[in-house]
Amino acid sequence: MTAATPSTGRDWSDTVLNAYLAVFYAYLFLPLLLMVAAAFNASPTPSVTDWQGFTLDWFRRLPQDQRFIQGLWHSLIIAAGVIVIALPLGLAGALVLTRLQSRATTSLYTILVSPILTPGIVLGVTTMIFWRDTFGVEAGLFTAAVAQASFIASYCMLMFMARLQRQDRALEEAALDLGASPVLVFRRITLPFLMPTMITASFIAFLQSIENYNTTFFAIGSSWTLVTEIGSRMRFGLSPTVNAIGVLFVALTVIAAVVWVATRRRELARRAAG
């Protein structure tokens, strides 16, 4: 249905709603636009009101900044660690919860999703204490990865569960009936079925890990990631280099979001057609 005439009496409330939407989106985007604009201002404090000319200086400085480069490297290491830890855990949890028919599943479920509902700093604190007191491991990249994995695993689990709930159990039963061992069934039937989720879950885990500040801030000790480094720079005063990084983040995000929405729409269109 294209261009359907909306019925009388709706016009007024539609106008109000549209006006509100405009205000809301302006509220969302204006600060970001200001931040982007300030990255190109020659003024040494990030500003748009005090315009001292267009410059790309702040971008040129980025690759020379050793702490940023090092932080980026740390972020990637942690993210890789998080994927390695969180994906198997999330999968195991999802399998147990979807396959186990027991009254205990609700409590187990509650425990397994609780990290999502726990403040990030608490996760950071507990991981730090646990590893130091029990194993004598000082806070660092390893604890940061473990702390992040503790809640990212829950997200992965929810994604795997959503997928598993759509699986036809008859497929596995048919394979077992044909004489396959449970291990073979898992490898040939279940895992291939979960493959798309594996990929999206890794992607989400990667993003969550890179983006994380609260948990990492506590668990990483004296080391740093890109994001905690940005955070500590901000605490010591604003610098346009941070704006420059911000522009890169915004650009990446916009590209990713456009791709995401486009693929989602194509998917919807395909589903509508099929």
């Binding site: 359907a4 005439t5 909306p6 019925s7 009388t8 009496g9 709706r10």
Partner: peptide
């Protein structure tokens, strides 16, 4: 009343329904 006709009029009990939600 969920759609407004592109043309013509609908009356109920002799009363035009145009503009009535």
């Amino acid at each position: 009343g969920f759609l407004d006709p592109s043309s013509g009029d609908i009356a109920i009990g002799g009363r035009s329904m145009a503009g009535i939600g």
